[in-house]
Design a protein around this nucleic acid. Sequence first.
DNA 1: CGCAGGTTTGAGAGGAGTCAAGGGTTGTGG
DNA 2: CCACAACCCTTGACTCCTCTCAAACCTGCG
Lengths: 264, 264
Amino acid sequence: MAQSDNPLRLFADRLARHSRLDRFERQEILALPGTIAHVRANQDFVRLGERPDHACLIIDGVAGRFGQSADGSRQITALHIAGDMGNLHAAVSPGGAAPLQALTAVSVLKVPHSALREIARARPAIGEAFWRESVLEAAVLAEWTVNVGRRNARARAAHLLCEMGWRYEEIGERVGFSYEFPVTQQQLADMLALTPVHVNRTLKTLRIENLADVHGRRVDILDWNALMRAGEFNPAYLDTGTGGEQRAKPKLSLVPPRRPRMEA
Amino acid sequence: MAQSDNPLRLFADRLARHSRLDRFERQEILALPGTIAHVRANQDFVRLGERPDHACLIIDGVAGRFGQSADGSRQITALHIAGDMGNLHAAVSPGGAAPLQALTAVSVLKVPHSALREIARARPAIGEAFWRESVLEAAVLAEWTVNVGRRNARARAAHLLCEMGWRYEEIGERVGFSYEFPVTQQQLADMLALTPVHVNRTLKTLRIENLADVHGRRVDILDWNALMRAGEFNPAYLDTGTGGEQRAKPKLSLVPPRRPRMEA
DNA sequence: CGCAGGTTTGAGAGGAGTCAAGGGTTGTGG
DNA sequence: CCACAACCCTTGACTCCTCTCAAACCTGCG
């Protein structure tokens, strides 16, 4: 993508979205060591029980944290997109590294846990930011559980589309009401705890109702407000900020709905 | 319960289960300020959107973290039992405090966030332990999502009973294969993403199959191994330890199964 | 004693799963 | 440049797990 030189800038920006870091602390983040790796779509790049010695900063693409049930069926429990540090938590809990799967082709920066723990110890503000990052991830996980547990297929899908729309907007990768989300319906099924067949029918419903159009690698939100209502989406859980201080942010352009495509 | 004087000992023990703390650090934990409060069953003691200035160390009873969907139905996403610090995460993310409901009568120690953040900053090892605590909670959340998303009613219930059996054993509140778990079937339904009616039928199945007997306020595990199999329970996710070092622990008495009650 | 809240059971409905086949798209190799 | 393969999407028909509605039964307690 357009992010110029240092992939760590993505991560620093993400931290800055919820934590207050001064320029020295930010500098430390940007100076973290790491090596770039590329992962092909559909490849598991952290497997269950593995004890990786590095975290994976997603530079580009979509990765999923998943759990597996006995019959091999997967449940994706979290998505990581550009700027997210997958398995940051394993820095303090290496045995608890979450399995990660590349849903699309993914570029990652592998950052050694040792380095992360070092700056967390040396700079309490950074340590706190990492902690907060884990807390936010947990909040998203909790909402995911509610989604899967208490909503029907249509609401689940709507909720997911809203969440990803929101998150892609945060990182500047949503233009208007359209964003790239190149996952298959099979993978959507693993996120929504549905079968691929039913995902297909559900997306069709959303399209017919003029709420959202998911086609191939792209999501067009046709009626943002209606979609939020259908998915009972309240972005509060994504947006929980800093330590004690207020945050200065009107942020998200909650522009009135729009209906760009009038197709069949 | 039997824990003598300082409720914080419960919490310190819990931290010690996954993090290495020296005696001075432990001392700091034990010296945390706090006031005891009692909550009646079924009362929400942290509400959605609230910004509490304290975390809630559960001394006794069962509390649930929950999310709500539009029609008011609840999804419990995590359980807190004695020794768990509910809403520890809110110390760094006050806006993200999780709603908490007392499922039984609950005693809590309210510990000011400010104090928690202070010792986390002053003592990096404690900060890291808190971070790790949040990470472990997230791991449990993720497993919960898998449970709700990818398993049928019987497996879900079995998994929950295993998890709670494991956790009550950790805190020394399980004698043999029996533990107190005084929640209603309605509340179980909110945990398992089922209806109370179906919970009832499911528990009946487990009883008939001689896997577990849930009656009123108590759970008797009739066949631990079979129950683990039925619930696809693998305690690894509950048991993810320390920073880099090994942990010395054979721990859990994974005694061979037993069939204490031969009743109808 | 009688109420309130929890548990148990039955009968019927419905949302999502399963099985199966056909149509589209993309990429690659002849 | 076309042909084919692999993968994905779409749709139909039928099944089944879980929900809904409803009533009865327990049990602790005021």
